[in-house]
């Protein structure tokens, strides 16, 4: 191979650049990514795309099955299911992504610092996590909502504040392993400061488990939202979300199965796509994975 050739193509060579290159070769992950992008675009454009307004009721219609006018049928109040699912998706995706992002950000940073610094700092930080674990989280969330009133923002914060605990523990365990490795010591001996080391050397090496756990967190956050909404603590009717639609659908499952099937399908497909994407990302971010670049 000529010596000059690889150099040009290399300017952008980095973990993320290579990860993107590898991800594009993983068909399942790519399909998941495309599906999610479509879902997100639809959610963003829902007010323009939705066939009906979401509060529009036709009581006379009642719960009717799929038809030309209402592709996915209508619910007991005669509201168009497709519209409800589209609007519900906005809430579910927002809660799923934002609350998970909050959990991810806090959890990774907190866990990385605790694991990297170690010693008493670690002990104090992790005992704090233990204390939060021990708080019954429903009471915690209800307290928050009672004190500050109901709002979507608070819902994100409340859910994120619960979900980051496990993330912090996972990351801390990983970091404790990584910081004992020689390449971290090599970075110290190079004169790098602790933040640079955490950012460049430690966190990238914790990504595998973090991504897997993230793909598990998103669905559990969506279900948590449904649960809170069901109790009247989350989004309020006539607003809805996938989780809420499903839990209403369950009640009328025997008479009107489409009220359960379609929102369930929307949630399931999204979670499938997320899992494929998560697996793909985990492999793509690991240069040693089998699908990695061959001898170049």
């Amino acid at each position: 191979m000529s010596v000059a050739l690889p150099v040009d193509a290399q300017q952008s060579s980095s973990l993320w650049g290579d990860a993107w290159w590898r991800l594009r070769r993983n068909r399942a992950a790519l399909a998941g990514l495309i599906f999610l992008s479509v879902i997100v675009v639809v959610a963003l454009l829902t007010p323009l795309l939705a066939p009906y307004a979401y509060e529009e009721q036709r009581l006379a219609l009642g719960a009717s099955g799929p038809s030309a006018a209402h592709w996915l049928g209508t619910d007991v109040l005669g509201r168009d299911m497709l519209t409800r699912i589209m609007y519900g998706g906005r809430v579910s995706l927002l809660v799923g992504f934002v609350a998970t992002a909050v959990a991810l950000l806090i959890g990774v940073l907190y866990g990385a610092v605790a694991g990297y610094v170690g010693g008493r700092v670690d002990a104090v930080m992790m005992r704090f996590v233990d204390i939060l674990y021990a708080l019954p989280f429903m009471i915690f969330i209800i307290l928050l909502l009672v004190i500050f009133g109901q709002s979507m923002l608070l819902l994100f914060i409340a859910i994120g504040a619960v979900e980051w605990l496990t993330m912090a523990r996972i990351v801390r365990g990983q970091v404790q392993n990584i910081r004992r490795q020689e390449f971290v010591e090599a970075a110290v001996s190079m004169g790098l400061g602790p933040w640079t080391i955490i950012r460049r050397h430690v966190i990238p090496n914790t990504l595998g488990p973090v991504i897997v756990y993230t793909t598990l967190t998103i669905p559990s956050v969506m279900l948590l939202e449904a649960f809170l909404s069901f109790l009247g603590l989350g989004v309020q009717p006539p607003q809805s979300s996938w989780g809420l639609l499903i839990s209403y659908g369950v009640e009328t499952m025997e008479e009107f199965p489409w009220l359960l099937v379609y929102p369930g399908l929307a949630l399931t497909l999204t979670l499938f796509a997320l899992n494929f994407l998560g697996d793909g990302l985990r492999d793509a971010l690991d240069p040693q994975s089998a699908s990695g670049r061959g001898g170049s």
């Binding site: 060579s13 390449f183 090599a186 790098l192 990238p204 090496n205 971010l285």
Partner: peptide, 15 residues
């Protein structure tokens, strides 16, 4: 163990 498995040779030497 002394090389970060997620950094290319370029990144490692340029750092």
């Amino acid at each position: 163990a002394s090389l970060n498995p997620r950094m290319t040779v370029y990144e490692c030497l340029a750092e």
